[in-house]
Design a protein around this nucleic acid. Sequence first.
DNA 1: CGCTTACTTGAGTCTGGTCAAACGGGGTGG
DNA 2: CCACCCCGTTTGACCAGACTCAAGTAAGCG
Lengths: 253, 253
Amino acid sequence: MQKRNTTDASKNRTKCEDCPLAKLHEFREFTPPELKFVSSFKQGEMAIDKGHTLLVEGAHSAHLYTVLLGWGFRYKILEDGRRQILNYLVPGDLIGLQGALMEEMQHSVESLTPMTLCIFARGKLPELYRNYPSLGYDLTWMAAREEQILDHTLTSVGRRTALEKIAYLLALLYQRAQKSGAMKNSNSYIPITQHHLADTLGMSVVHCNKTLKTLASQKLIRWGERECYVLDIDGLMSAAKWEGMDAGARPFI
Amino acid sequence: MQKRNTTDASKNRTKCEDCPLAKLHEFREFTPPELKFVSSFKQGEMAIDKGHTLLVEGAHSAHLYTVLLGWGFRYKILEDGRRQILNYLVPGDLIGLQGALMEEMQHSVESLTPMTLCIFARGKLPELYRNYPSLGYDLTWMAAREEQILDHTLTSVGRRTALEKIAYLLALLYQRAQKSGAMKNSNSYIPITQHHLADTLGMSVVHCNKTLKTLASQKLIRWGERECYVLDIDGLMSAAKWEGMDAGARPFI
DNA sequence: CGCTTACTTGAGTCTGGTCAAACGGGGTGG
DNA sequence: CCACCCCGTTTGACCAGACTCAAGTAAGCG
């Protein structure tokens, strides 16, 4: 919730041709014309600090973003302060698609680490759909994938036990981070607090803490200050009774 | 779970030009060329019985459907039988978009009432994106809307109390049914069992039953055999601490 | 007419929540 | 440089919302 300036990093802008995400195995490749368009679609870059609130529920955002670097999450808050974290954001993820298509955002977005974002002009979306159908397809694909993740999470929150829930979420985040390159330097760590975990899974911080102890005692994870190290991903997945989710080469913009 | 034959109703097929959904205020209108394409995109119609399992998790479906009539729901099942209902289907909703874009369906779909579905050929999707960008946009819009509903439901399952959860879900279903014309004849009733409610909201049938009694005693609803009558939608929404969700004119295919 | 499905209701139990207190590290102002 | 504070984490004691088990009713169907 800290308020800090955001830095406009348009100067040292990453060229789409050199996009670090493109190098990852997980993403599909653009054709040259697509690449050219995406490059023009991109308006600039933005660097934000840790703990910055990027978008607020109810706002009407003029932009669409892609995460280039860093972690974030999106969430809703009830009147009395109860918070539900809906999903996390890692490199390659879109921010604000709902807001770009509908009237307004129905959730807020906050950063967990310093982030770098690509900024796209919402106004150019019609052109994208008109002239680059494959990119339009990709956008639908990404929305469908977000839906899939929500399906898995909803199933966990609704029907799994505390231990299973936590194991599920950590396994999911581990896998997403691996694929997106979010763990490049820092080996297998996830930058969240126990409070975030609790608010994602519909449980209290206290009980979350006690459950983490159990997972740690089983050598599945190790908890650090504001971060979680995954020691045994297979063990986590079987503790969660979860088989993972996969979906071939993903697009990104 | 009853297994019945599905009837191919291609014979008495509804022409897209006469689509009953188009008459509803909620949906946007097609342009003539769009209408022509959609008409060719539609391969036929299918009528299915109540309690029929339309799609199974893990399957690879060749079709995409739109609900013309009736109620359904999509869900996941854990190995040990625990079930999580993810969302409900009312007229105008798409079925199988995830399956059409990704490798396989990651959830199952079942009917709550007899249903009529329009069948679309998954293989024609590229043509849709190529030649009818506005329809491609609509598909993304629909995926984003599904995501929005999931956001609301996840928030309820994770952070609302039992009473609030149930009030939320009934209010949501009531509103969706109203807008989609699913309540045309039968005034304000929702065709689900308490078991469905429980499996949607992550609670037990017993506790669900007791909570429904409370809502009924407050004159917000009346419960019938296999169905729920909403008596006071505003009361329900305030009991849920929920403001509803709206999003202008929705597209459909 | 017996079977199954849906709904009720009560009793007892337990997972997970609340309350409270304490610790350690990092940042900040005096 | 130090005192203080805040945040994130930890732990214990107690509480309660929600679950399980169990049994019974009513309606629908073959």
